[in-house]
């Protein structure tokens, strides 16, 4: 009888562990806190939506981009124009640096951008970008199998005009 009680206790602990693990994710915490906050704008694309991409017309999308997108599982963006530096600090404080590895830090007069990654077995599973300037704060998380080289090359193959086209395309669809 004692054995089964012990078993239950162990399972209970596992459950607590699983739940706290689920909340450990830095951007998850930040999202959870601000997703309903009107000061923030949020974009999230779930793994389910990523699976639906197979039904979309990909013809106009460059091959590099297509490959990168097809390996992603989810995207979350949260951004605000209100007191950007305050939220930047809070976001950095929430990130557990034991889990993430610093990748790139840009700091100049206008920008403050950090890229951190979650890696295991040579594969990057999450890329987190935290950026701030006087106009706003943005936190962006890509989850999936991320090829940094390819990602870095994407912008080289597409100019800023391409970006503008995308914005327009999005508006047209609405």
């Amino acid at each position: 009888m004692m054995m089964y009680k012990k078993l239950l206790v162990v399972l209970g602990l596992l459950l607590v562990g699983a739940v706290s693990y689920a909340q450990d994710d830095a951007i998850g915490k930040f999202f959870g806190k601000y997703v309903e906050d009107s000061r923030f704008s949020v974009v999230s694309v779930s793994p389910k939506m990523f699976r639906l991409f197979s039904k979309v017309n990909w013809d106009t999308i460059p091959a590099d981009l297509r490959q990168t997108v097809s390996k992603l599982q989810s995207l979350r963006i949260i951004s605000t124009e209100t007191t950007p530096y305050v939220f930047y600090k809070e976001a950095l404080a929430k990130i557990d640096m034991r889990e993430y590895e610093e990748l790139i830090t840009v700091r100049d007069k206008n920008d403050n951008i950090r890229f951190v990654v979650k890696e295991s077995g040579g594969i990057i599973h999450e890329l987190l970008m935290i950026a701030v300037d006087k106009d706003g704060f943005t936190m962006m998380s890509f989850v999936g199998d991320i090829d940094l080289d390819k990602l870095a090359r994407l912008s080289a193959s597409m100019d800023i005009k391409g970006l503008e086209d995308l914005k327009n395309a999005k508006r047209k669809n609405k």
């Binding site: 994710d25 951007i27 998850g28 999202f31 959870g32 997703v35 309903e36 949020v42 974009v43 999230s44 694309v45 779930s46 793994p47 389910k48 939506m49 990523f50 639906l52 991409f53 039904k55 979309v56 017309n57 999308i61 981009l65 990168t68 997108v69 992603l72 989810s74 995207l75 979350r76 963006i77 790139i104 840009v106 920008d111 951008i113 890229f115 890329l127 970008m129 950026a131 962006m140 890509f142 940094l148 990602l151 870095a152 090359r153 994407l154 912008s155 080289a156 597409m158 391409g162 970006l163 995308l166 914005k167 395309a169 999005k170 669809n173 609405k174």
Partner: peptide, 28 residues
């Protein structure tokens, strides 16, 4: 609440993903 989809239309979601990737890439 992290994974409540912002878009219902995959086409729009894909456009958002592209945009995000390009912003990330540019910042990198």
């Amino acid at each position: 609440p992290a994974m409540k989809d912002t878009y219902d239309d995959p086409q729009q979601a894909l456009a958002a993903v592209q945009k995000a990737l390009l912003i990330a890439s540019r910042n990198m």
